Simulated assay, not measured.
Amino acid sequence: MTNTRLTFCNEIHEEALLAFHLPPEQEKFTAMPNEALKKCEEDPGRHPVVIEANGRTVGFFVLHKGENIGDFTANPNAMVIRALSINHPEQGKGFAKDAMLQMPQFVSDHFPEVNELILAVNFKNDLAKKLYEKVGFVDRGQIKPGPVGPQYVLHYDV
């Protein structure tokens, strides 16, 4: 059993995040942590979060709220999950599922006003879509264009 936890990103995670590796077939679907962190510096509505397991940095994502999520929803209390990835050597160990199961409580603890989580997943990224649906995200039929093709927009009521 792993001890997986979510924590806000800080300097101690930087080296591990910069060393993140994804194979090309995965990298096309997400922003790498270093790219996502740059956007977080530019947009105060973006909050970088690290997935730790047994004291190691194994994953990363961004929680994004505010006016810049209008292409996902009109709900002012929604939060978008962006750039979720698990470092390639750490994949297949259940870390993404553990993180997704912890996310509603993490968001409620740190952003009590948020009542909905939203994420987009590329049509061709079946594994990710199945994971998100398994942990309770719902496909309500919303589709948006993405950088490498259409994306399903999935919702989770907090």
Results as ranks from 00 to 15, higher is better:
1 M>Q: 09
8 F>R: 15
8 F>E: 13
12 I>K: 15
14 E>R: 13
15 E>K: 15
16 A>H: 08
17 L>H: 15
17 L>N: 08
18 L>S: 09
19 A>V: 00
21 H>G: 07
25 E>L: 08
27 E>P: 04
27 E>D: 14
28 K>V: 15
33 P>N: 08
36 A>R: 11
37 L>A: 08
38 K>H: 10
38 K>S: 13
39 K>I: 07
40 C>P: 08
40 C>Q: 09
44 P>I: 01
44 P>C: 05
46 R>Q: 14
47 H>S: 13
49 V>F: 06
51 I>K: 00
53 A>R: 03
54 N>W: 01
57 T>W: 01
57 T>H: 02
57 T>S: 15
57 T>E: 05
58 V>T: 14
59 G>V: 07
60 F>D: 10
62 V>Q: 03
62 V>M: 05
62 V>T: 11
65 K>F: 11
67 E>Y: 01
70 G>C: 06
70 G>F: 07
72 F>L: 04
77 N>T: 09
77 N>F: 12
79 M>E: 06
81 I>T: 14
83 A>M: 03
86 I>Y: 08
87 N>Y: 09
87 N>T: 00
88 H>Y: 15
90 E>M: 12
91 Q>M: 10
91 Q>W: 03
92 G>N: 12
95 F>Q: 06
96 A>T: 06
98 D>G: 10
98 D>K: 11
99 A>M: 00
100 M>P: 07
102 Q>K: 12
103 M>K: 02
104 P>D: 04
105 Q>Y: 09
106 F>C: 05
107 V>R: 01
109 D>F: 02
109 D>Q: 11
110 H>F: 11
110 H>A: 02
112 P>M: 02
112 P>A: 04
114 V>C: 10
117 L>V: 01
119 L>Q: 02
122 N>H: 12
123 F>T: 07
125 N>D: 10
126 D>W: 04
127 L>W: 09
127 L>H: 08
128 A>F: 01
128 A>G: 00
128 A>P: 01
130 K>F: 00
131 L>W: 01
132 Y>Q: 05
133 E>H: 04
134 K>M: 01
134 K>A: 15
136 G>K: 04
137 F>T: 00
138 V>Y: 05
139 D>M: 02
140 R>H: 14
141 G>D: 12
143 I>C: 03
144 K>G: 02
144 K>T: 14
145 P>D: 15
146 G>C: 01
147 P>E: 09
147 P>L: 12
147 P>N: 11
148 V>D: 14
149 G>R: 05
149 G>W: 00
149 G>I: 03
149 G>C: 02
153 V>K: 08
154 L>D: 02
157 D>R: 06
158 V>G: 13
